[in-house]
Design a binder for these strands. Structure first.
Lengths: 192, 192
DNA sequence: TTCAGATTTAGACACTTGTATAAGCAATAG
DNA sequence: CTATTGCTTATACAAGTGTCTAAATCTGAA
């Protein structure tokens, strides 16, 4: 990403970022990711290509920014409840809500893109990394006798696995059932 | 993949496939995947671009074929030991050996490519799918009370997680320690 | 050895990509 | 109000992509 998201954006930059990302999200509901070119995005958004490349490295970069926008729904109140061992469940629940809110978008995306293709992969990866960063700092894995990073990796993969199962592979499950899956897969009682 | 790998290839086709794949593997040890173009591959291999596109859809397709070639080391005696619950460990061991044999290649690849980039991802994914296909048919998950596919997915992700930890993130571990990780992460006693 | 069917190849096509330059415009500090 | 700074944009470039044609070449079965 060429644009620095930490500094607060000017009004113009906000407009530009919003324009590109909504165009991308709209296109994702209409055609496969390979068919979406930077040219097309720029024509629809009415910006020249040069502007696109002022903000993003390529279309993968933009699509990652889209996931970032979606992920904002969770991360607003990031501070609360850290350092507790319940972090995992709390984060799982938040992601569950975000995925549920975006179910229509996900359905459309899967209409045009392979489950194991680049696009769905980038989506899944984005959220996996989100979870992993949180878990590495906030969970006490000392009871497991395994390396912290390995364990954090395993937990975040499992959280995402269950969400994939429910929202991408469409085996609908309410939060209660989802928790049951998560607890069985992770053996949660061993370290919570 | 445009070329049909099930039918037995002519001598010419064998030469072509081998030429393209060894060129790709060589290049992967020398530069990042983005810098490798179909043009470059064809120049080095001394084939015209048209021939490349007779066999592969694009360079991702070729790189997948490379993983297929590497994976052949395991799958020769695929038949033995199926339908046993020890399949998981047996396959883990085989993959452990394959990854170990290809450690120098992996090291080079990681010199030029991000751990979470497209290339490493395609490698990891290829082997994850390999494991998953095997596990879905051959393990009895009835004791876990979880959907079969979910469980098979979780097991294959965990197998690959441990291998990534050891061979890509370079936390060297012998087979004994690797088994210990796997058993703790998967709670193997619950269903083996 | 021959020959029909399949593969390979040269060349061209329309298109995308990422970068670079210089001109234009807008917002801010003095 | 204006000078300066920084972002936007028009345009051009060298390179890559994937597809298509028709001619050349190979191959395997008779």
């Amino acid at each position: 990403m060429k644009y620095d998201l930490t500094k607060k954006p000017t009004r113009g930059a906000q407009r530009t970022l919003a324009s590109f990302s909504t165009t991308m999200i709209n296109l994702l509901s209409k055609e496969p990711f390979e068919k979406i070119s930077v040219n097309k995005i720029c024509n629809i958004s009415n910006f020249p290509r040069a502007t696109f490349y002022n903000y993003f490295d390529d279309k993968f970069d933009l699509v990652d920014y889209c996931w970032y926008v979606i992920a904002q729904e969770i991360e607003v109140d990031k501070v609360t409840e850290l350092k507790s061992n319940k972090t995992l469940i709390i984060y799982f629940d938040r992601l569950y809500d975000v995925f549920k809110d975006n179910q229509p978008l996900l359905d459309n995306i899967l209409l045009y893109n392979d489950f194991s293709g680049q696009l769905v992969n980038s989506f899944v990866n984005y959220f996996k990394n989100t979870v992993q960063e949180i878990l590495e700092q906030s969970i006490d894995y000392s009871k497991t006798g395994l390396p912290v990073e390995l364990m954090a990796d395993h937990c975040s993969e499992t959280v995402i696995l269950v969400l994939k199962w429910i929202f991408l592979k469409r085996h609908d499950a309410d939060k209660k059932l989802a928790h049951e899956y998560l607890e069985k897969l992770l053996n949660l009682d061993q370290f919570i």
